[in-house]
Amino acid sequence: MSNGTQRQSISMAPLETVLSKPRLDRYRTSANDTPRVVMGRYLWNLALCKALYPELQFLEVAFCNRLHNALKVHFNTAAWFELSWLSPRESQKVADAKVELRKRQSPLEPDRIVAELSFGFWTSLLSGLYDQVIWNQRGVVRQSLPHMPNHLRTRRRISDRMHQHRLLRNRVSHYEPIWHWSNLSQQYADLRQTLQWLEPELVHLLSMPQSFEEVHLQGPGAYEVDVR
């Protein structure tokens, strides 16, 4: 990596053992790629994921809380998930969250249960299955993404956007390659826009020393190391 310091040569063989050759092969574009190039892409991918983490973290927490608050108002209870409108699949996820809280001997308070639910749970509430229950109510839509333009604010558009973000979030969380995505810059722009729709002040907090754009522009060459 070009950081102004001298590094000793690194051996590829043990890296293929601990990181696994099949995993590293996903960073090859041809059989002629050298270990230096492969590990450059791997480390670049790592840097890209690291640079995306703040936006993804804010997205998940903010969307969860915005929708939770909207549903509290809509159903007039903080325990809206205890009512009978959830599908068996989502109800099971609530039950699983309670099990985890009991294991930790934590109180089964609504806010604790909500915090235990996965991002997949929240995006599943955007399904057309819940159109008549919650999404035909303008208040829920407006409160979930209060700064989204009115002409764009529909359940289908929110669903498409959040599922796009969930795919990116899952790839980052499970250490999968994203470096080769041709639309990665656009996905990042969409992510920032969604944060604006949730709360513009979140974007103001994201003045990181090294932004995603800087890491993306550097390319894998900036992350190459002497690998033999």
Rank of each mutant, 00 (worst) to 15 (best):
M162I: 11
R166M: 14
L168I: 11
S127H: 06
R157E: 08
Q132W: 11
Q132K: 14
L152Y: 05
I158H: 03
W122F: 13
T154E: 02
H147M: 02
Q132G: 15
L152G: 08
Q143T: 07
F121G: 12
R169H: 03
Q143P: 03
L145N: 07
M162V: 10
L167Y: 10
T123R: 01
F121T: 13
T154K: 04
S144I: 05
H163A: 09
S144G: 06
L167C: 02
S124V: 05
R166S: 08
S159Q: 05
V141L: 15
G128C: 03
I134D: 00
W122E: 09
Q164L: 13
N150I: 11
R157C: 08
L126V: 04
V140H: 06
V133K: 06
W135Y: 05
S144Q: 03
H163N: 14
V140M: 04
L145C: 15
R142D: 02
R138W: 05
Q143A: 14
S127W: 00
D160T: 13
R138F: 05
S144T: 15
M162N: 07
V140T: 07
H151I: 03
D131A: 15
D131N: 14
S124I: 06
V141W: 00
D131H: 10
I134Y: 05
R138P: 02
S124R: 11
H151D: 02
L129F: 06
R153D: 00
Q164I: 04
Q143N: 12
S127C: 10
G120N: 06
T154R: 01
L145M: 15
S159L: 00
P149A: 04
P149N: 05
V140C: 12
V133E: 09
H163E: 11
R169T: 08
L152C: 08
H165A: 15
W135M: 07
T154V: 04
R142S: 07
Q164V: 08
G139K: 02
T154H: 06
P149F: 01
L129M: 03
M162E: 04
I158E: 01
M148Q: 10
H165R: 01
L152N: 07
R157T: 07
L168P: 03
R155K: 10
L152V: 03
R157K: 12
G128E: 04
R142E: 09
